[in-house]
Amino acid sequence: MKALKALVVDDEPLARERLSRLLQEAGCDVIGELGDGLSLLRWLKEPRAVDVIFLDIQMPGPNGMEVLAEVSDCPPVVFVTAHATYAVRAFELAAVDYLLKPVFDDRLAKCLQRLQQQLVRRLSPLELKTLLPPPTRFPIRAGDGEVFMELELITHFELENERVWACRGLNRYVTRWNTLAEVEQAFPEDGMIRIQRHLLLRPQMVKGIRPTSVGRIKVMIAPKVELTVSRAMTPRTRDCLRAQNIPI
């Protein structure tokens, strides 16, 4: 049985290195590693001898699905993601496989077997576009009117004087909401955590954490921007970040 030629695309260096190592241990030939969607788009513009792309979905810039939807002729793809919702949407086509982070060798072995048996076919751009979830937007105030903001750009929501602010690091935008409960109800599948009575965190935006001297943690959401997690919510926040494959 020939060795599969694989490309690994992931913006997390540790995850990328781990998957490459597991693939090599399984007898695959890892022909390259990339760290973002734009690099993949440039890579795909040239003819390449590759059997499969192991592709992280959530990456800076265009995500994995968005890149593939722009490519007319793409090799078979295995999506690698920490978000089960994306994985299920992909697998429902019976056309791609997926690996949930963290990747383990037994699940990877089943995936490689499907690839060897040619059960993972190439997707057309139209099929890939059906996998893309609709953009999640909400209105924010801008002068005398409103504009729509993408939820995926927001790091957290903050309640101040009975008004909810959508925050992107240090930048804040006033919304229509008056309580954080309204935000949670608007986006029930986003997995937000109430880390303080007045703070609602999107854990997928956390870049790192550090402990404090009083049994709490601080989460970094942007360079030099941290939020303090309450003592009561520290254990749940840690568990949630582990589920997001964030080293803690």
Rank of each mutant, 00 (worst) to 15 (best):
M1F: 12
D10P: 08
E12F: 06
E17N: 11
L22E: 05
L22I: 01
E25R: 14
E25A: 13
G27V: 01
G27I: 02
D29N: 05
G32M: 07
S39H: 08
L40Y: 01
L40R: 05
R42K: 13
L44W: 05
L44S: 03
R48H: 12
V50R: 05
V52E: 01
F54K: 06
D56E: 01
I57S: 02
I57A: 02
Q58T: 09
E66N: 05
V67I: 04
L68I: 05
S72I: 02
S72Y: 00
S72R: 15
D73P: 01
C74Q: 07
P75Y: 00
V77S: 04
A82N: 04
H83F: 14
Y86G: 00
A87C: 00
F91D: 00
E92M: 03
L93D: 01
D105P: 00
A109R: 09
C111G: 02
Q113K: 13
R114I: 06
Q118W: 03
R121L: 07
R122A: 09
L123H: 00
P125E: 04
P125F: 07
K129F: 01
T130L: 12
T130G: 06
L132I: 15
P133W: 02
P135T: 12
T136I: 14
R137G: 09
F138I: 13
F138P: 10
F148R: 13
L151E: 12
L153K: 14
N161C: 14
R163H: 13
V164S: 11
A166Q: 10
L170G: 10
V174Y: 00
R176T: 13
L180P: 01
A181Y: 11
E182C: 05
E182A: 14
Q185G: 08
E189G: 05
I195M: 03
Q196A: 05
R197Y: 08
R202N: 13
Q204R: 15
Q204G: 12
Q204Y: 12
V206L: 03
V214S: 15
M220V: 07
I221K: 04
E226W: 13
S230T: 06
R236P: 09
D239I: 11
Q244A: 11
I246Y: 06
